[in-house]
């Protein structure tokens, strides 16, 4: 996993509420055997006409060249619905490392953190302020200080994150790296109990 310290980037706005994981990655793409490649099907049915990837819907934000960046900003209750981890994989594979919303579904939040995508939960007002920015403006997400800043106006807000997970992201560790780092404890446990 890539470490996340400070992300300074333009953002892609998706001002919709209750975006569910079926929209993020439709079920018919779950028969794949790798984690990679889900990015091209991210928001598949919103992105293309008639399920044809040579036929993009011009006004969908991912198809508009004036919007780009590593940060996805979405409406309330992002990632609800099925627990499929493929949703987090698709977002990461597309190139996002931060998702900003005013509320995240629980399982999606966990899956994101497990895959090196930082969910930043902000207030409804702050979210609105971000949506009011133009397409050239940038955001700074400072994980160490748990702060998100609208660079144009200097307005900022702090966000919550579990301490263990914060350390994982700062160091580019995931749970697996952590578990491997305590292998001695695990072997000791095995010797004592098995």
């Amino acid at each position: 996993m890539e470490p996340i310290k400070t992300i300074h980037s333009r953002f892609v706005p998706l001002p919709l509420e209750n975006v569910d994981t079926d929209q993020i990655i439709p079920a018919r793409f779950l028969k794949a055997t790798t984690r990679e490649g889900f990015g091209k099907n991210l928001f598949r049915d919103w992105r293309y006409l008639d399920n044809d990837d040579t036929n993009p819907k011009k006004d969908f934000v991912l198809n508009r060249p004036e919007y780009e960046g590593k940060i996805l900003v979405a409406g309330k209750n992002f990632g609800c619905g099925s627990s499929r981890e493929h949703a987090a994989w698709a977002i990461l594979d597309h190139g996002f490392t931060v998702v900003v919303s005013s509320f995240f579904a629980d399982i999606f939040k966990g899956n994101s953190l497990n895959n090196g995508v930082l969910p930043v939960q902000v207030s409804d007002e702050f979210l609105q302020k971000i949506f009011n920015q133009d397409n050239q403006s940038t955001l700074t997400v400072d994980l160490e200080n748990q702060k998100i800043i609208i660079d144009n106006t200097g307005e900022e807000e702090t966000f919550d994150i579990n301490n263990y997970k914060k350390n994982c992201l700062l160091n580019g560790y995931d749970d697996i790296d952590y578990l491997v780092s305590i292998k001695e404890d695990i072997e000791k446990f095995e010797n004592q109990t098995l």
């Binding site: 981890e85 899956n111 497990n114 895959n115 952590y178 578990l179 491997v180 305590i182």
Partner: peptide
């Protein structure tokens, strides 16, 4: 468990 956790168990025989 989810797929990341399957990987955790592969790597360490443990889950968080």
């Amino acid at each position: 468990i989810g797929t990341s956790e399957v990987e955790m168990v592969f790597a360490s025989q443990c889950v968080l």
